[in-house]
Write a protein that binds this DNA or RNA. Structure first.
Lengths: 136, 136
DNA sequence: GCGCCTATATATAAACA
DNA sequence: TTGTTTATATATAGGCG
């Protein structure tokens, strides 16, 4: 796509890979946005790096909405889903406690950082787009 | 991108919209695949139409893997009240207070503009489509 | 690491088969 | 309709500051 064609294989150079990642991540999210807008559909996306430093990137940016879409997907996919079964047979109290601990430990920070990163990564152009839409 | 530039708004013509949807859906998935391959990251995606006839499209094609990725995401982002979240950071780092306010502001803006909030869709899942795609 | 630039690779809207 | 083709819009690799 650019000056040179690149092979479809993991980029070895850390620097290049990171650079390419940021650029393409941005492009992918724009494409998702375009598809959703043009065709009136829901697109949900999670981009996770193996690097714990880097926050996950989500789409749509509203994590609540993303969760709704995911839940909707799970319901439609697995009417008799494994988790439902697990819930049923599992000691409920223990499970909830477990999740609470997790939430307290790191999840809070992760969620916030994810949002913050997303906002930071938004190009001015997109922010202006938001403003324009808001005015409408 | 093609012969003519099109406006970034829902395509009214059913025929065109469907056509565009299929084309861009494919393009989006290719981009997701490229990003995952080139940058060695995990990309998960669900594309749901409001039309129950149309199956949801997922990435990666292996629904088990998709579910794993989603679960991983949920583990890192348990539902936490945003105000609690903000309070947590403000108490901890007063220096960040200003930035947090800004972030919150932008956050609200983005939420308000949650473009494709077309509310609940009840798409039907047909993973067979992926099998077919794979065979091709 | 960010943003801008430019040349080139891709994606794709419309036409056509 | 589903698949090519084609002309044009976008995305983006590599440079530069």
């Amino acid at each position: 796509m650019g000056r040179a064609k690149i092979a479809m294989e993991p980029i070895t150079s850390d620097k290049k890979r990171k650079l390419t990642f940021n650029m393409r991540k941005q492009g992918l999210i724009k494409k998702a946005h375009d598809l959703a807008t043009l065709c009136d559909v829901d697109v949900s996306m999670i981009i996770s790096t193996n690097d714990q430093e880097t926050p996950q990137q989500i789409f749509p940016p509203d994590s609540n909405q993303l969760n709704r879409l995911i839940d909707l997907y799970k319901h439609c996919t697995n009417p008799v889903n494994q988790y439902v079964l697990l819930d049923f047979f599992m000691d409920r109290k223990n499970k909830m406690e477990e999740e609470l601990v997790k939430a307290k430990k790191k999840n809070v920070e992760a969620k916030y950082l994810s949002w913050f990163d997303f906002l930071d990564s938004l190009p001015e152009v997109r922010l202006r787009e938001f403003a324009l839409r808001l005015e409408k």
